[in-house]
Design a protein around this nucleic acid. Structure first.
Length: 268
DNA sequence: ATGTCTCGACGTTCGAGA
């Protein structure tokens, strides 16, 4: 029995609804986790998703900024788990529980703060917010709930490994790849007993990106990407991973997001 | 080229955030 989980920073779900529908009809993941939906809950476009068979939808939005949504063909439970990291009321987390192949699985959907431009928390409060958010994530453990497996996805806004960026040396002082961030993400991963599924599928020595800036004449020719979007799981599920698709082609779609969808496939 | 894109704000353009 197969299970597929997708994650995608959509950068406005209302603006890019045709692209979401294209993803769902063409790739048909069991569950799609979106970030940066940028819409309050009352205005979220539920009906076109339900019409495609995705009848189980959990949303956590706010006006104009941030926002996450988990869109599923499988029934979802425990839809009200939205954690207020840093206690400032941002819509950046949502978790649900579902069942597949005899397993009960908690699925976390995250949108980690980007952190601004200057990698110094003394002069840039947004960087401080990002570091505090990551610090709070260290408490997440993949095996914290008896009988439950875990998956964690989202735009974590950190490219942790050398080959998660186009130039390790040139990126060391650029937010998303500074040592304090990459060390924090690595600590969350190891302290929480998570497995980095993209890197289980693609060796760490190979370049792998999920995001290409809008600020480029030709994103494809420059290919200065970063791996900001992640899918992690508990070890029991990682053992059932068959492959991961990074849909690079989506960066070339009309009016694209700057992030591309990533889909993990399991054989359970 | 502080490079582009999105949203909200009493909008016909700009500032925020990314």
């Amino acid at each position: 029995m197969s299970l597929s989980i997708a994650t995608w920073n959509i950068n406005s779900v209302r603006l890019r609804m045709p692209l979401v529908e294209h993803l769902l009809t063409t790739w048909a993941p069991d569950i799609l986790c979106l970030q940066e939906t940028k819409v309050e809950n009352s205005l979220f476009p539920l009906s076109p998703l339900k019409a495609l068979g995705y009848e189980h939808i959990a949303i956590h939005g706010q006006k104009g900024y941030h926002g996450v949504a988990t869109i599923s063909r499988l029934p979802l439970h425990d839809l009200s788990d939205r954690r207020d990291y840093c206690g400032i009321g941002d819509a950046r987390h949502l978790s649900v529980v579902f069942e597949k192949g005899g397993k009960t699985i908690r699925l976390h959907n995250f949108y980690v703060p980007a952190g601004g431009d200057e990698p110094n928390r003394e002069i840039n409060r947004k960087f401080g917010h990002k570091l505090d958010f990551l610090d709070e994530m260290k408490m997440l453990h993949a095996e914290s709930e008896a009988g439950l497996s875990s998956i964690l996805v989202g735009d974590l806004n950190v490219a942790p490994l050398e080959h998660d960026v186009w130039s390790h040396k040139q990126m060391l002082k650029v937010i998303s790849h500074t040592p304090v961030e990459t060390e924090a993400l690595t600590a969350i991963l190891s302290d929480g007993a998570w497995v980095d599924l993209l890197r289980q599928h693609v060796p760490a020595a190979e370049k792998l990106y999920t995001w290409w800036s809008y600020r480029s004449k030709d994103w494809q020719a420059a290919d200065r990407g970063r791996r900001l979007d992640h899918i992690w799981s508990s070890g029991d599920l990682a053992a059932h991973l068959t492959h991961v698709d990074v849909l690079k082609e989506a960066r070339g779609w009309e009016r694209p997001s700057d992030h591309v969808p990533v889909i993990a496939h399991f054989d359970l």
